[in-house]
Write a protein that binds this DNA or RNA. Structure first.
Lengths: 181, 181
DNA sequence: GTCTATAAACGGATAGAC
DNA sequence: GTCTATCCGTTTATAGAC
Protein backbone atom coordinates (compact mmCIF):
# COMPACT_ATOMS: atom_id res chain seq x y z
CA UNK A 1 0.00 0.00 0.00
CA UNK A 2 1.29 3.47 -0.86
CA UNK A 3 1.90 5.95 1.88
CA UNK A 4 -0.85 8.18 0.60
CA UNK A 5 -3.33 5.33 0.67
CA UNK A 6 -2.25 4.42 4.18
CA UNK A 7 -2.76 8.02 5.21
CA UNK A 8 -6.27 8.07 3.83
CA UNK A 9 -7.04 4.81 5.59
CA UNK A 10 -5.88 6.05 8.95
CA UNK A 11 -7.62 9.35 8.61
CA UNK A 12 -10.89 7.65 7.76
CA UNK A 13 -10.47 5.19 10.63
CA UNK A 14 -10.03 8.07 13.07
CA UNK A 15 -13.27 9.63 11.91
CA UNK A 16 -15.21 6.38 12.06
CA UNK A 17 -13.91 5.49 15.48
CA UNK A 18 -14.38 8.98 16.85
CA UNK A 19 -17.92 9.13 15.55
CA UNK A 20 -18.85 5.87 17.16
CA UNK A 21 -17.33 6.82 20.50
CA UNK A 22 -18.74 10.36 20.48
CA UNK A 23 -22.17 8.89 19.83
CA UNK A 24 -21.83 6.28 22.56
CA UNK A 25 -20.13 8.15 25.37
CA UNK A 26 -20.53 11.75 24.29
CA UNK A 27 -17.88 14.11 22.92
CA UNK A 28 -16.54 15.29 26.25
CA UNK A 29 -16.34 11.83 27.78
CA UNK A 30 -14.29 10.54 24.85
CA UNK A 31 -10.57 11.15 25.17
CA UNK A 32 -8.09 11.07 22.34
CA UNK A 33 -6.33 8.33 24.21
CA UNK A 34 -9.48 6.21 24.00
CA UNK A 35 -9.92 6.88 20.30
CA UNK A 36 -6.30 5.99 19.58
CA UNK A 37 -6.40 2.85 21.72
CA UNK A 38 -9.54 1.63 20.00
CA UNK A 39 -7.79 1.65 16.64
CA UNK A 40 -4.43 0.46 17.96
CA UNK A 41 -2.39 3.54 17.24
CA UNK A 42 -1.00 6.20 19.55
CA UNK A 43 -2.47 9.52 20.53
CA UNK A 44 0.39 11.31 18.83
CA UNK A 45 -0.53 9.68 15.57
CA UNK A 46 -4.05 10.98 15.82
CA UNK A 47 -2.60 14.45 16.27
CA UNK A 48 -0.69 13.99 13.06
CA UNK A 49 -4.02 14.04 11.21
CA UNK A 50 -6.03 16.46 13.34
CA UNK A 51 -4.45 19.42 15.05
CA UNK A 52 -7.05 19.47 17.83
CA UNK A 53 -9.89 17.40 19.18
CA UNK A 54 -12.33 20.02 17.95
CA UNK A 55 -11.02 19.55 14.42
CA UNK A 56 -12.24 15.95 14.51
CA UNK A 57 -15.70 17.10 15.47
CA UNK A 58 -15.67 19.71 12.72
CA UNK A 59 -14.69 17.10 10.14
CA UNK A 60 -17.57 14.90 11.23
CA UNK A 61 -20.07 17.71 10.92
CA UNK A 62 -18.68 18.66 7.53
CA UNK A 63 -19.59 15.16 6.38
CA UNK A 64 -23.17 15.74 7.50
CA UNK A 65 -23.36 19.04 5.72
CA UNK A 66 -22.00 17.47 2.57
CA UNK A 67 -24.76 14.90 2.72
CA UNK A 68 -27.66 17.21 3.48
CA UNK A 69 -26.86 20.07 1.15
CA UNK A 70 -27.76 18.21 -2.08
CA UNK A 71 -30.76 16.63 -0.36
CA UNK A 72 -32.14 20.07 0.38
CA UNK A 73 -31.49 21.22 -3.17
CA UNK A 74 -33.38 18.25 -4.59
CA UNK A 75 -36.23 18.83 -2.19
CA UNK A 76 -36.53 22.46 -3.21
CA UNK A 77 -37.25 21.42 -6.77
CA UNK A 78 -40.34 19.44 -5.82
CA UNK A 79 -43.72 21.09 -5.81
CA UNK A 80 -46.18 20.57 -2.99
CA UNK A 81 -45.45 20.39 0.70
CA UNK A 82 -46.44 16.75 0.93
CA UNK A 83 -43.96 15.64 -1.72
CA UNK A 84 -41.24 17.74 -0.17
CA UNK A 85 -41.81 16.32 3.29
CA UNK A 86 -41.69 12.79 1.94
CA UNK A 87 -38.48 13.33 0.00
CA UNK A 88 -36.74 15.13 2.83
CA UNK A 89 -37.77 12.55 5.40
CA UNK A 90 -36.73 9.65 3.18
CA UNK A 91 -33.26 11.11 2.67
CA UNK A 92 -32.88 12.01 6.29
CA UNK A 93 -33.98 8.61 7.54
CA UNK A 94 -31.74 6.80 5.07
CA UNK A 95 -28.73 8.59 6.47
CA UNK A 96 -29.77 7.89 10.05
CA UNK A 97 -30.23 4.18 9.36
CA UNK A 98 -26.96 3.96 7.43
CA UNK A 99 -25.17 5.39 10.45
CA UNK A 100 -27.31 3.47 12.84
CA UNK A 101 -24.66 1.93 15.06
CA UNK A 102 -22.96 5.30 15.15
CA UNK A 103 -26.08 7.33 15.89
CA UNK A 104 -26.38 10.88 14.61
CA UNK A 105 -24.45 13.76 16.09
CA UNK A 106 -27.25 16.32 16.13
CA UNK A 107 -27.23 20.03 16.83
CA UNK A 108 -28.55 19.08 20.24
CA UNK A 109 -25.21 17.88 21.51
CA UNK A 110 -23.79 20.46 23.94
CA UNK A 111 -20.34 20.04 22.42
CA UNK A 112 -21.79 21.18 19.10
CA UNK A 113 -24.02 23.91 20.44
CA UNK A 114 -21.36 25.67 22.47
CA UNK A 115 -19.03 26.22 19.52
CA UNK A 116 -20.36 29.10 17.46
CA UNK A 117 -18.29 28.22 14.45
CA UNK A 118 -19.26 24.55 14.43
CA UNK A 119 -22.89 25.36 15.05
CA UNK A 120 -23.37 27.79 12.17
CA UNK A 121 -23.74 25.35 9.27
CA UNK A 122 -26.18 22.88 10.81
CA UNK A 123 -28.29 25.81 12.00
CA UNK A 124 -28.40 27.15 8.45
CA UNK A 125 -29.49 23.76 7.13
CA UNK A 126 -32.26 23.60 9.71
CA UNK A 127 -33.59 26.99 8.67
CA UNK A 128 -33.55 26.02 5.00
CA UNK A 129 -35.36 22.76 5.69
CA UNK A 130 -38.08 24.50 7.66
CA UNK A 131 -38.60 26.98 4.84
CA UNK A 132 -39.05 24.13 2.39
CA UNK A 133 -41.66 22.45 4.54
CA UNK A 134 -43.53 25.37 6.00
CA UNK A 135 -42.80 28.50 3.99
CA UNK A 136 -41.13 31.70 5.15
CA UNK A 137 -42.92 32.09 8.45
CA UNK A 138 -43.35 28.75 10.20
CA UNK A 139 -45.69 28.72 13.20
CA UNK A 140 -44.36 27.76 16.60
CA UNK A 141 -46.07 24.40 16.29
CA UNK A 142 -44.33 23.78 13.01
CA UNK A 143 -40.95 24.77 14.34
CA UNK A 144 -41.49 22.56 17.38
CA UNK A 145 -42.35 19.65 15.11
CA UNK A 146 -39.15 20.18 13.18
CA UNK A 147 -36.95 20.28 16.26
CA UNK A 148 -38.49 17.07 17.54
CA UNK A 149 -38.30 15.17 14.27
CA UNK A 150 -34.68 16.11 13.62
CA UNK A 151 -33.54 14.45 16.81
CA UNK A 152 -34.42 10.78 16.44
CA UNK A 153 -31.33 9.52 18.24
CA UNK A 154 -33.32 8.29 21.27
CA UNK A 155 -35.71 6.40 19.00
CA UNK A 156 -32.86 4.60 17.26
CA UNK A 157 -31.31 3.76 20.61
CA UNK A 158 -34.62 2.47 21.94
CA UNK A 159 -35.29 -0.01 19.14
CA UNK A 160 -32.10 -2.00 18.74
CA UNK A 161 -33.85 -5.24 17.78
CA UNK A 162 -35.27 -3.95 14.48
CA UNK A 163 -33.71 -4.76 11.12
CA UNK A 164 -32.54 -1.82 9.05
CA UNK A 165 -35.59 -2.05 6.82
CA UNK A 166 -37.98 -2.16 9.73
CA UNK A 167 -36.28 0.76 11.42
CA UNK A 168 -36.39 2.77 8.22
CA UNK A 169 -40.13 2.29 7.88
CA UNK A 170 -40.85 3.09 11.50
CA UNK A 171 -38.81 6.27 11.32
CA UNK A 172 -40.39 7.40 8.06
CA UNK A 173 -43.90 7.03 9.40
CA UNK A 174 -42.97 8.71 12.65
CA UNK A 175 -41.21 11.71 11.13
CA UNK A 176 -43.93 12.30 8.57
CA UNK A 177 -46.62 12.21 11.21
CA UNK A 178 -44.70 14.66 13.37
CA UNK A 179 -43.87 17.05 10.57
CA UNK A 180 -47.26 17.29 8.87
CA UNK A 181 -48.87 19.64 11.40
CA UNK B 1 -30.48 30.25 60.86
CA UNK B 2 -29.79 26.90 62.44
CA UNK B 3 -26.97 24.75 61.16
CA UNK B 4 -29.38 22.13 59.92
CA UNK B 5 -31.32 24.74 57.95
CA UNK B 6 -28.10 26.08 56.49
CA UNK B 7 -27.13 22.56 55.47
CA UNK B 8 -30.43 22.03 53.72
CA UNK B 9 -30.04 25.34 51.95
CA UNK B 10 -26.56 24.60 50.67
CA UNK B 11 -27.50 21.10 49.58
CA UNK B 12 -30.46 22.38 47.63
CA UNK B 13 -28.36 25.13 46.06
CA UNK B 14 -25.84 22.58 44.86
CA UNK B 15 -28.55 20.57 43.15
CA UNK B 16 -30.14 23.60 41.51
CA UNK B 17 -26.84 24.95 40.27
CA UNK B 18 -25.60 21.57 39.08
CA UNK B 19 -28.80 20.91 37.22
CA UNK B 20 -28.63 24.22 35.42
CA UNK B 21 -24.99 23.76 34.44
CA UNK B 22 -25.41 20.11 33.43
CA UNK B 23 -28.28 21.12 31.17
CA UNK B 24 -26.37 24.00 29.63
CA UNK B 25 -22.89 22.61 29.14
CA UNK B 26 -23.48 18.90 29.61
CA UNK B 27 -22.53 16.73 32.57
CA UNK B 28 -18.99 16.00 31.48
CA UNK B 29 -18.13 19.57 30.61
CA UNK B 30 -19.26 20.81 34.01
CA UNK B 31 -16.58 20.64 36.70
CA UNK B 32 -17.20 20.72 40.43
CA UNK B 33 -15.04 23.81 40.53
CA UNK B 34 -17.48 25.57 38.23
CA UNK B 35 -20.48 24.49 40.27
CA UNK B 36 -18.85 25.66 43.49
CA UNK B 37 -17.73 28.98 42.02
CA UNK B 38 -21.20 29.70 40.68
CA UNK B 39 -22.66 29.53 44.17
CA UNK B 40 -19.70 31.18 45.92
CA UNK B 41 -18.50 28.28 47.98
CA UNK B 42 -15.47 26.04 47.61
CA UNK B 43 -15.20 22.73 45.87
CA UNK B 44 -14.40 21.03 49.18
CA UNK B 45 -17.69 22.21 50.57
CA UNK B 46 -19.54 20.59 47.70
CA UNK B 47 -17.77 17.36 48.54
CA UNK B 48 -19.05 17.66 52.09
CA UNK B 49 -22.56 17.09 50.73
CA UNK B 50 -21.88 14.72 47.86
CA UNK B 51 -19.16 12.12 47.97
CA UNK B 52 -18.71 12.07 44.19
CA UNK B 53 -19.80 13.95 41.13
CA UNK B 54 -21.91 10.98 40.12
CA UNK B 55 -23.80 11.24 43.42
CA UNK B 56 -25.05 14.68 42.36
CA UNK B 57 -26.37 13.26 39.14
CA UNK B 58 -28.07 10.43 41.00
CA UNK B 59 -29.75 12.87 43.37
CA UNK B 60 -31.08 14.88 40.43
CA UNK B 61 -32.53 11.78 38.81
CA UNK B 62 -34.08 10.73 42.12
CA UNK B 63 -35.98 14.00 42.07
CA UNK B 64 -37.38 13.16 38.66
CA UNK B 65 -38.44 9.71 39.78
CA UNK B 66 -40.14 11.21 42.82
CA UNK B 67 -42.10 13.47 40.53
CA UNK B 68 -43.13 10.90 37.95
CA UNK B 69 -44.04 8.03 40.25
CA UNK B 70 -47.29 9.58 41.56
CA UNK B 71 -48.11 10.89 38.09
CA UNK B 72 -48.05 7.36 36.73
CA UNK B 73 -50.17 6.11 39.61
CA UNK B 74 -52.80 8.76 38.94
CA UNK B 75 -52.76 7.99 35.26
CA UNK B 76 -53.28 4.31 35.88
CA UNK B 77 -56.58 5.07 37.60
CA UNK B 78 -58.06 6.75 34.57
CA UNK B 79 -60.07 4.72 32.08
CA UNK B 80 -59.57 5.12 28.35
CA UNK B 81 -56.32 5.58 26.48
CA UNK B 82 -57.21 9.09 25.38
CA UNK B 83 -57.75 10.31 28.95
CA UNK B 84 -54.57 8.61 30.10
CA UNK B 85 -52.48 10.15 27.34
CA UNK B 86 -53.83 13.59 28.15
CA UNK B 87 -53.17 13.31 31.85
CA UNK B 88 -49.70 11.89 31.40
CA UNK B 89 -48.71 14.47 28.81
CA UNK B 90 -50.08 17.34 30.90
CA UNK B 91 -48.06 16.27 33.94
CA UNK B 92 -44.96 15.62 31.91
CA UNK B 93 -45.13 18.94 30.09
CA UNK B 94 -45.78 20.86 33.31
CA UNK B 95 -42.58 19.50 34.77
CA UNK B 96 -40.62 20.28 31.63
CA UNK B 97 -41.86 23.87 31.54
CA UNK B 98 -41.30 24.36 35.26
CA UNK B 99 -37.67 23.36 34.75
CA UNK B 100 -37.47 25.17 31.49
CA UNK B 101 -34.32 27.20 32.00
CA UNK B 102 -32.71 24.07 33.36
CA UNK B 103 -33.94 21.79 30.61
CA UNK B 104 -34.65 18.16 31.37
CA UNK B 105 -31.93 15.62 32.03
CA UNK B 106 -33.46 12.78 30.04
CA UNK B 107 -32.44 9.15 29.75
CA UNK B 108 -30.81 10.18 26.51
CA UNK B 109 -27.90 11.94 28.14
CA UNK B 110 -24.77 9.78 27.72
CA UNK B 111 -23.76 10.50 31.30
CA UNK B 112 -27.01 8.89 32.40
CA UNK B 113 -27.07 6.05 29.95
CA UNK B 114 -23.58 4.80 30.66
CA UNK B 115 -24.27 4.21 34.35
CA UNK B 116 -26.27 1.03 34.77
CA UNK B 117 -27.33 1.89 38.29
CA UNK B 118 -28.48 5.40 37.43
CA UNK B 119 -30.28 4.21 34.36
CA UNK B 120 -32.44 1.54 35.98
CA UNK B 121 -35.19 3.66 37.53
CA UNK B 122 -35.96 5.93 34.57
CA UNK B 123 -36.06 2.85 32.35
CA UNK B 124 -38.62 1.27 34.66
CA UNK B 125 -40.76 4.40 34.54
CA UNK B 126 -40.63 4.38 30.75
CA UNK B 127 -41.86 0.81 30.61
CA UNK B 128 -44.73 1.57 32.97
CA UNK B 129 -45.76 4.63 31.00
CA UNK B 130 -45.81 2.70 27.74
CA UNK B 131 -48.01 0.01 29.31
CA UNK B 132 -50.47 2.66 30.44
CA UNK B 133 -50.74 4.14 26.99
CA UNK B 134 -50.50 1.12 24.75
CA UNK B 135 -51.18 -2.02 26.79
CA UNK B 136 -48.85 -4.91 27.45
CA UNK B 137 -47.49 -5.34 23.96
CA UNK B 138 -46.82 -1.99 22.32
CA UNK B 139 -46.05 -2.06 18.60
CA UNK B 140 -42.74 -0.76 17.36
CA UNK B 141 -44.46 2.36 16.07
CA UNK B 142 -45.89 2.99 19.50
CA UNK B 143 -42.59 2.47 21.23
CA UNK B 144 -40.89 4.74 18.73
CA UNK B 145 -43.49 7.42 19.43
CA UNK B 146 -42.85 7.16 23.14
CA UNK B 147 -39.09 7.47 22.79
CA UNK B 148 -39.47 10.55 20.63
CA UNK B 149 -42.05 12.29 22.80
CA UNK B 150 -40.11 11.74 26.01
CA UNK B 151 -37.16 13.69 24.71
CA UNK B 152 -38.41 17.21 24.10
CA UNK B 153 -35.20 18.92 25.21
CA UNK B 154 -34.33 20.08 21.67
CA UNK B 155 -37.79 21.56 21.23
CA UNK B 156 -37.48 23.56 24.42
CA UNK B 157 -34.05 24.75 23.37
CA UNK B 158 -35.31 25.74 19.93
CA UNK B 159 -38.15 27.96 21.12
CA UNK B 160 -36.61 30.28 23.69
CA UNK B 161 -38.84 33.24 22.82
CA UNK B 162 -42.11 31.63 23.94
CA UNK B 163 -43.76 32.44 27.27
CA UNK B 164 -44.24 29.54 29.65
CA UNK B 165 -47.92 29.30 28.78
CA UNK B 166 -47.25 29.30 25.07
CA UNK B 167 -44.55 26.68 25.41
CA UNK B 168 -46.81 24.49 27.51
CA UNK B 169 -49.54 24.53 24.88
CA UNK B 170 -47.16 23.83 22.02
CA UNK B 171 -45.61 20.90 23.86
CA UNK B 172 -48.97 19.42 24.86
CA UNK B 173 -50.24 19.48 21.30
CA UNK B 174 -47.01 18.09 19.97
CA UNK B 175 -46.67 15.22 22.46
CA UNK B 176 -50.30 14.20 22.11
CA UNK B 177 -50.03 14.12 18.36
CA UNK B 178 -46.90 12.01 18.50
CA UNK B 179 -48.21 9.56 21.08
CA UNK B 180 -51.65 8.89 19.60
CA UNK B 181 -50.54 6.51 16.87
C1' DG C 1 -20.23 23.67 57.88
C1' DT C 2 -16.72 25.83 55.36
C1' DC C 3 -12.11 26.71 54.31
C1' DT C 4 -6.89 26.11 52.48
C1' DA C 5 -3.74 23.04 50.65
C1' DT C 6 -2.48 19.23 48.21
C1' DA C 7 -2.47 14.56 46.28
C1' DA C 8 -3.12 11.70 42.24
C1' DA C 9 -4.73 10.99 37.81
C1' DC C 10 -6.21 12.46 33.43
C1' DG C 11 -6.64 15.21 29.27
C1' DG C 12 -5.05 17.96 25.36
C1' DA C 13 -1.15 19.03 22.99
C1' DT C 14 3.99 19.17 21.34
C1' DA C 15 9.12 17.72 20.42
C1' DG C 16 11.94 14.86 18.38
C1' DA C 17 13.61 10.02 17.17
C1' DC C 18 12.97 6.42 13.74
C1' DG D 1 3.56 7.99 9.05
C1' DT D 2 4.08 6.35 13.55
C1' DC D 3 6.25 6.07 17.92
C1' DT D 4 8.20 7.38 22.83
C1' DA D 5 8.60 10.79 26.05
C1' DT D 6 7.13 14.79 28.14
C1' DC D 7 4.85 19.34 29.35
C1' DC D 8 1.21 21.57 31.56
C1' DG D 9 -3.33 22.80 32.80
C1' DT D 10 -7.52 20.77 34.76
C1' DT D 11 -10.20 17.53 37.37
C1' DT D 12 -11.76 14.48 40.88
C1' DA D 13 -11.13 13.72 45.43
C1' DT D 14 -9.02 13.89 50.33
C1' DA D 15 -6.63 15.74 54.77
C1' DG D 16 -6.76 18.65 58.21
C1' DA D 17 -7.31 23.50 60.22
C1' DC D 18 -10.84 26.73 61.95
Amino acid sequence: MTRAAQAERTRAAILTTARRLFATHGYDATSLHTIADEMDVTKANVYYYFRTKTAILEALLDNSVTYFDPLLTETAQLKGKRARAEHLVAGFVDQVVANRALSPLGQTHPSVRRNERINAEPARLATTAMRLLYGDEPTDDQRAAWFLASDVGPVVAGLPHLTHDELREVLRRLCLRVLRV
